[in-house]
């Protein structure tokens, strides 16, 4: 396996990935001083660390993640939010800046409303607390939400946000990627269509190489088609 380090190796649960327990990283476990993979994923191995980039799996909240959620229940002191993970999240009323005294909770956010929020904490009882006191956080009243596999979110964002910057600048639209696999896109309808298609391509080809170049090409081609159509109709 090691001689093929150029190409990404796919590993399965139980595969031995390293004999150095200090290198064990995400997606691995250590037993008797040996490091094994615990999920199906791509092996990312350097001299000092071994980690597995999972190909599938559910989102597990961790503090400071930006997530997109849907309000499932309105309580007196806040909202119960579905954030597409095994645990329900709670957004306390005081964590929503739109909440003012004298305003009822269900006038601010009602059942079925979508929000962009941030995870504050996840306690040992797996109770997730959210906040909306952040610049990116807002209720979603327009635009589109695209659902993808949460394990592929890092590829949609790209290295240091490269992929998302590409889509934003090429198409001139707003995109917020929730760590839980929900992506909010807003802007010109036809351009949003292109972005949605691009995101689905990234999702299905997340484990392949040279993806950014292919997406750049795809977006440019679709934009040209759009412009041609525009001049024909105009």
């Amino acid at each position: 396996m090691s001689e093929k380090s150029e190409k990404r190796v796919i590993v399965m649960p139980g595969d031995l990935v390293s004999t150095n327990p200090r290198a064990a990283g995400y997606g691995t476990y250590v037993e008797n001083g040996k490091v094994y993979a615990r999920v199906l994923g791509l092996l990312d191995k350097t001299d000092t660390s071994v980690r597995i980039i999972p190909l599938n799996g559910k989102y597990v909240p961790s503090p400071n993640d930006v997530v997109i959620g849907i309000v499932r229940e309105v309580a007196g002191n806040g909202w119960v939010v579905d954030i597409n993970c095994p645990y329900q999240a709670f957004l306390p009323a005081q964590e929503n800046p739109e909440c003012r005294p004298g305003k009822k909770a269900n006038d601010v956010l009602d059942i079925g409303d979508a929000i962009i929020a941030k995870v504050v904490s996840i306690d040992p009882k797996m109770k997730v607390t959210l906040t909306m006191k952040d610049r990116v956080c807002r209720p979603i009243r327009f635009g589109r939400i695209v659902a993808i596999n949460p394990a592929r979110v890092p590829r949609v964002i790209g290295k240091k946000g490269s992929m998302i910057k590409l889509l934003k600048s090429e198409l001139g639209i707003q995109i917020v990627v929730g760590q839980n696999g929900l992506v909010w896109i807003s802007g010109d309808r036809r351009k949003v269509n292109i972005a949605e298609e691009a995101i689905y391509i990234i999702e299905s080809e997340a484990h392949t190489e040279g993806l950014t170049d292919r997406i750049t090409e795809f977006v440019k081609r679709r934009k040209e088609e759009l412009e041609k159509e525009g001049t024909r109709n105009g």
Partner: peptide, 11 residues
């Protein structure tokens, strides 16, 4: 189970 991405010790 492997396809679902569930963490496992082996198969």
């Amino acid at each position: 189970l492997v396809d679902a991405g569930i963490p496992m010790k082996g198969i």
